[in-house]
Simulated scan of single mutants.
Amino acid sequence: MEQKDSAERILKQIPYEIVYSAHKTLAVQVKADGSVVVRAPKRMAKYKIEAFLKEKQDWIHTHREKALAAAEQKEANRLTEAERKAAVKRAAQMLAEKTAHFAKEMGVTYGRITIREQKTRWGSCSSAGNLNYNWKLVLMPEHVMDYVVIHELAHRKEMNHSARFYAVVAQQMPDYKVWQSWLKEHGREY
């Protein structure tokens, strides 16, 4: 009985939207802002939807917490225009220095460096050796910036993502997988 009461309390505490569709199955989605959307077949009784939500309450709670924490982190990372301009300038300087340092260590050359602001890309290397970096790298742990610089310079030896490419990266940064994973997990917070 206690579990049923807690499930009902959780459902009342978490507002959700029901979207009826031609699909034949129930599905629940937790959006980036923490809102919950239930997709249900047309004419499905509300008690069946609520039973489904009770069954999925742990999953909903876990994913909602993650989404809300990520949204909070993203908000904390917002900068004023003056702070953003200063960060872009600092990123350009740091990335130029790191690129020169690691290029020398790796025995590679490169063309021009461009600082950009992209949603999902942290760096790129053209076939001509021109490098693009996302300025938001300056907001992350320094090892992440090192990883991206090394990753892009490794393309000067291997223009792909093969095992040979990652061997070049690992030669320079043996623990690169830690920072690669960090970037995949936390990059969207920036």
Score class of each variant (00 low, 15 high):
Tyr166Pro: 02
Glu189Met: 08
Ser21Arg: 08
Glu65Gln: 14
Met106Asp: 07
Phe102Leu: 08
Arg90Ile: 02
Ala69Gly: 00
Glu97Met: 12
Glu75Val: 09
Pro15Ser: 11
Glu72Gly: 10
Lys119Asp: 04
Lys31Gly: 00
Leu95Arg: 05
Ala96Gly: 07
Trp59Glu: 05
Arg9Val: 11
Lys46Ser: 06
Gln180Gly: 01
Phe165Cys: 05
Asp5Gln: 14
Asn130Gly: 03
Phe102Lys: 10
Ala92Trp: 04
Glu65Asn: 06
Gln118Cys: 00
Ala7Ile: 14
Glu189Arg: 14
Thr62Leu: 10
His186Met: 12
Leu131Asp: 03
Arg121Phe: 02
Ala167Lys: 15
Ala32Phe: 01
Lys4Arg: 14
Leu153Lys: 04
Tyr190Glu: 00
Thr120Asn: 12
Asp5Asn: 11
His101Tyr: 15
Ser162Asp: 10
Gly123His: 07
Ala154Trp: 09
Ala100Leu: 13
Pro41Met: 04
Arg164Met: 06
Gln29Arg: 14
Glu152Val: 06
Leu183Asn: 05
Lys12Cys: 04
His63Thr: 00
His23Met: 09
Arg156Thr: 08
Lys74Phe: 09
Ser21Pro: 01
Arg90Val: 03
Lys12Tyr: 01
Gln57Leu: 09
Pro174Glu: 10
Met173Gly: 06
Tyr16Trp: 10
Gln13Arg: 13
Asp58Ile: 10
Ala70Gln: 11
Ile14Trp: 11
Glu117Pro: 08
Trp179Tyr: 15
Lys85Ala: 14
Ala71Asp: 06
Val178Leu: 15
Gly123Met: 08
Ala22His: 10
Trp135Tyr: 12
Pro41Arg: 07
Asn130His: 13
Thr80Ala: 06
Lys66Tyr: 03
Asn77Phe: 14
Gly187Gln: 07
